[in-house]
Protein backbone atom coordinates (compact mmCIF):
# COMPACT_ATOMS: atom_id res chain seq x y z
CA UNK A 1 0.00 0.00 0.00
CA UNK A 2 1.43 3.37 -0.96
CA UNK A 3 0.21 6.88 -0.21
CA UNK A 4 0.06 10.06 -2.22
CA UNK A 5 -0.04 13.73 -1.41
CA UNK A 6 -3.26 14.87 -3.08
CA UNK A 7 -3.36 18.52 -1.99
CA UNK A 8 -0.96 20.90 -0.28
CA UNK A 9 -0.68 24.49 0.84
CA UNK A 10 2.25 26.75 1.68
CA UNK A 11 2.38 30.04 3.54
CA UNK A 12 5.78 31.67 3.54
CA UNK A 13 7.81 34.61 2.25
CA UNK A 14 4.76 36.85 2.04
CA UNK A 15 2.95 34.45 -0.31
CA UNK A 16 0.18 31.88 0.07
CA UNK A 17 0.15 28.96 -2.37
CA UNK A 18 -2.14 26.01 -2.98
CA UNK A 19 -1.02 22.98 -4.96
CA UNK A 20 1.93 25.07 -6.09
CA UNK A 21 -0.06 28.01 -7.48
CA UNK A 22 0.10 31.44 -5.92
CA UNK A 23 -3.17 32.37 -4.26
CA UNK A 24 -2.16 35.62 -2.57
CA UNK A 25 0.93 37.79 -1.98
CA UNK A 26 1.55 40.87 0.11
CA UNK A 27 5.02 42.34 0.46
CA UNK A 28 3.97 45.30 2.58
CA UNK A 29 3.00 43.82 5.91
CA UNK A 30 4.88 44.22 9.17
CA UNK A 31 2.99 41.92 11.51
CA UNK A 32 1.53 38.48 10.83
CA UNK A 33 -1.90 39.85 11.77
CA UNK A 34 -1.63 42.48 9.03
CA UNK A 35 -0.68 39.78 6.55
CA UNK A 36 -3.33 37.20 7.34
CA UNK A 37 -6.41 39.32 8.11
CA UNK A 38 -7.04 40.63 4.56
CA UNK A 39 -6.63 37.13 3.17
CA UNK A 40 -9.03 35.70 5.75
CA UNK A 41 -11.58 38.37 4.79
CA UNK A 42 -11.02 37.55 1.12
CA UNK A 43 -11.87 33.88 1.82
CA UNK A 44 -15.26 35.07 3.07
CA UNK A 45 -15.81 32.11 5.39
CA UNK A 46 -18.22 33.70 7.86
CA UNK A 47 -16.25 32.17 10.74
CA UNK A 48 -15.86 34.87 13.44
CA UNK A 49 -14.14 32.37 15.78
CA UNK A 50 -11.04 32.95 13.65
CA UNK A 51 -10.49 36.33 15.34
CA UNK A 52 -10.29 34.66 18.74
CA UNK A 53 -7.48 32.34 17.71
CA UNK A 54 -3.84 33.00 18.51
CA UNK A 55 -1.51 33.69 15.57
CA UNK A 56 -0.23 30.08 15.37
CA UNK A 57 -3.76 28.68 15.16
CA UNK A 58 -4.68 31.33 12.56
CA UNK A 59 -1.74 30.23 10.43
CA UNK A 60 -2.62 26.52 10.68
CA UNK A 61 -6.32 27.22 10.21
CA UNK A 62 -5.78 29.15 6.94
CA UNK A 63 -3.30 26.58 5.60
CA UNK A 64 -5.79 23.78 6.35
CA UNK A 65 -8.67 25.76 4.86
CA UNK A 66 -6.80 25.95 1.56
CA UNK A 67 -6.05 22.22 1.52
CA UNK A 68 -9.70 21.40 2.18
CA UNK A 69 -10.78 23.56 -0.75
CA UNK A 70 -9.17 20.92 -2.96
CA UNK A 71 -10.57 17.90 -1.12
CA UNK A 72 -14.20 16.88 -0.88
CA UNK A 73 -14.06 15.94 2.77
CA UNK A 74 -17.69 14.75 2.74
CA UNK A 75 -16.46 11.68 0.84
CA UNK A 76 -14.32 10.55 3.80
CA UNK A 77 -15.15 8.90 7.13
CA UNK A 78 -14.27 11.83 9.38
CA UNK A 79 -13.51 9.50 12.31
CA UNK A 80 -10.64 8.20 10.20
CA UNK A 81 -9.02 11.42 9.03
CA UNK A 82 -6.00 12.20 11.24
CA UNK A 83 -3.94 15.34 11.83
CA UNK A 84 -0.22 15.19 12.60
CA UNK A 85 1.63 18.50 12.82
CA UNK A 86 5.04 19.64 13.94
CA UNK A 87 6.97 22.85 14.56
CA UNK A 88 10.03 24.26 16.30
CA UNK A 89 8.53 26.94 18.51
CA UNK A 90 5.66 25.00 20.06
CA UNK A 91 3.28 27.69 21.37
CA UNK A 92 6.10 30.01 22.51
CA UNK A 93 4.64 33.06 20.74
CA UNK A 94 1.51 32.84 22.91
CA UNK A 95 3.48 31.61 25.94
CA UNK A 96 5.23 35.00 25.90
CA UNK A 97 1.84 36.74 25.76
CA UNK A 98 0.57 34.76 28.77
CA UNK A 99 3.80 35.44 30.69
CA UNK A 100 3.29 39.21 30.18
CA UNK A 101 -0.08 38.96 31.99
CA UNK A 102 1.56 37.58 35.15
CA UNK A 103 4.99 39.26 35.18
CA UNK A 104 3.85 42.15 37.31
CA UNK A 105 2.07 41.37 40.58
CA UNK A 106 0.19 44.68 40.55
CA UNK A 107 -1.01 43.90 37.02
CA UNK A 108 -1.61 40.16 37.46
CA UNK A 109 -4.49 39.32 35.12
CA UNK A 110 -3.96 35.94 33.43
CA UNK A 111 -6.43 35.59 30.59
CA UNK A 112 -8.13 32.26 29.87
CA UNK A 113 -8.45 33.07 26.17
CA UNK A 114 -4.68 33.56 25.96
CA UNK A 115 -3.72 30.67 28.24
CA UNK A 116 -5.77 28.11 26.31
CA UNK A 117 -3.53 28.69 23.30
CA UNK A 118 -0.32 27.94 25.22
CA UNK A 119 -0.39 24.40 23.81
CA UNK A 120 0.54 23.82 20.15
CA UNK A 121 -2.09 21.12 19.59
CA UNK A 122 -4.88 23.65 20.13
CA UNK A 123 -4.27 24.41 16.45
CA UNK A 124 -5.15 20.78 15.67
CA UNK A 125 -8.31 21.22 17.73
CA UNK A 126 -9.29 24.35 15.75
CA UNK A 127 -8.83 22.53 12.44
CA UNK A 128 -10.77 19.50 13.74
CA UNK A 129 -13.65 21.73 14.87
CA UNK A 130 -13.79 23.57 11.54
CA UNK A 131 -13.76 20.41 9.39
CA UNK A 132 -15.33 18.00 11.93
CA UNK A 133 -12.35 15.65 11.86
CA UNK A 134 -12.23 13.15 14.75
CA UNK A 135 -9.36 10.81 13.86
CA UNK A 136 -5.80 10.42 15.17
CA UNK A 137 -3.97 13.45 16.65
CA UNK A 138 -0.29 14.09 17.17
CA UNK A 139 1.81 17.20 17.70
CA UNK A 140 5.59 16.84 17.42
CA UNK A 141 8.48 19.24 17.99
CA UNK A 142 11.75 19.43 16.08
CA UNK A 143 14.44 22.06 15.76
CA UNK A 144 13.95 22.34 12.00
CA UNK A 145 11.48 21.02 9.44
CA UNK A 146 12.06 17.26 9.61
CA UNK A 147 10.35 15.44 6.76
CA UNK A 148 11.35 12.00 8.04
CA UNK A 149 9.86 12.66 11.49
CA UNK A 150 6.47 13.42 9.96
CA UNK A 151 6.71 10.79 7.24
CA UNK A 152 7.44 7.99 9.72
CA UNK A 153 4.63 9.01 12.04
CA UNK A 154 2.05 9.27 9.26
CA UNK A 155 3.31 6.15 7.50
CA UNK A 156 2.87 4.16 10.72
CA UNK A 157 -0.71 5.43 11.03
CA UNK A 158 -1.43 3.92 7.62
CA UNK A 159 0.52 0.72 8.40
CA UNK A 160 -1.57 0.24 11.54
CA UNK A 161 -4.82 1.02 9.64
CA UNK A 162 -5.51 3.90 11.97
CA UNK A 163 -6.43 6.43 9.26
CA UNK A 164 -7.97 6.58 5.78
CA UNK A 165 -6.32 9.95 5.19
CA UNK A 166 -4.14 12.37 7.13
CA UNK A 167 -3.42 16.08 7.16
CA UNK A 168 0.23 16.57 8.03
CA UNK A 169 2.91 19.20 7.93
CA UNK A 170 4.82 22.02 9.54
CA UNK A 171 3.24 25.13 11.07
CA UNK A 172 5.67 27.39 12.90
CA UNK A 173 5.26 30.95 14.13
CA UNK A 174 7.30 33.07 16.51
CA UNK A 175 7.36 36.85 16.85
CA UNK A 176 6.16 37.63 13.32
CA UNK A 177 8.29 34.96 11.61
CA UNK A 178 6.05 32.26 10.20
CA UNK A 179 5.90 29.39 7.77
CA UNK A 180 3.44 26.62 7.00
CA UNK A 181 3.42 23.60 4.72
CA UNK A 182 0.38 21.34 4.99
CA UNK A 183 -0.19 18.17 2.99
CA UNK A 184 -3.21 15.92 2.58
CA UNK A 185 -2.08 12.29 2.36
CA UNK A 186 -4.22 9.32 1.34
CA UNK A 187 -3.78 5.89 -0.25
CA UNK A 188 -2.75 6.03 -3.89
CA UNK A 189 -5.66 4.96 -6.05
CA UNK A 190 -5.06 3.22 -9.35
CA UNK A 191 -7.83 5.14 -11.06
CA UNK A 192 -7.79 8.62 -9.54
CA UNK A 193 -11.28 9.65 -8.50
CA UNK A 194 -12.94 12.32 -10.56
CA UNK A 195 -11.61 15.10 -8.43
CA UNK A 196 -9.84 17.49 -10.79
CA UNK A 197 -8.68 19.75 -7.99
CA UNK A 198 -6.36 17.11 -6.55
CA UNK A 199 -2.73 16.51 -7.39
CA UNK A 200 -0.91 13.20 -7.08
CA UNK A 201 2.60 13.17 -5.66
CA UNK A 202 3.97 9.93 -4.19
CA UNK A 203 4.21 10.44 -0.40
CA UNK A 204 7.81 10.27 0.82
CA UNK A 205 10.19 12.26 2.97
CA UNK A 206 12.00 13.37 -0.21
CA UNK A 207 8.76 14.65 -1.73
CA UNK A 208 8.08 16.61 1.46
CA UNK A 209 11.59 18.07 1.35
CA UNK A 210 11.10 19.14 -2.25
CA UNK A 211 7.82 20.87 -1.45
CA UNK A 212 9.36 22.52 1.62
CA UNK A 213 12.29 23.91 -0.34
CA UNK A 214 10.18 25.46 -3.11
CA UNK A 215 9.35 28.99 -2.11
Amino acid sequence: MSQSITAYSQIRSSCIKVNGSIEYCDENFITFAEFIKPFFKHLNLGYPKFYKMDPLSKLGFIAAELVFRKINIALYDRNRVGIVLANASSSLDTDLAHQRTIDNRSQYFPSPSVFVYTLPNIMIGEICIRHQLKGENGFLISEKFDSLLLFNYVNELFQHHRVDACLTGWVDLLQERFEALLLFVEPTTKAPAEEPLKVSIPFSAEAMDTLYKIT
Binding site: P48, K49, F109, P110, S111, P112, S113, V116
Partner: peptide, 17 residues
Protein backbone atom coordinates in the same frame (compact mmCIF):
# COMPACT_ATOMS: atom_id res chain seq x y z
CA UNK B 1 -22.86 37.20 19.87
CA UNK B 2 -21.91 33.53 19.80
CA UNK B 3 -19.96 33.75 23.06
CA UNK B 4 -18.74 30.57 24.78
CA UNK B 5 -17.42 29.38 28.13
CA UNK B 6 -13.97 30.93 27.62
CA UNK B 7 -15.63 34.30 26.88
CA UNK B 8 -17.55 34.03 30.14
CA UNK B 9 -14.26 33.60 32.04
CA UNK B 10 -12.75 36.44 30.03
CA UNK B 11 -15.56 38.79 31.14
CA UNK B 12 -14.67 37.98 34.77
CA UNK B 13 -11.09 39.09 34.00
CA UNK B 14 -12.44 42.27 32.36
CA UNK B 15 -14.40 43.26 35.47
CA UNK B 16 -11.39 42.62 37.67
CA UNK B 17 -8.86 44.37 35.46
Amino acid sequence: LGLDSIDALELIVLLEK
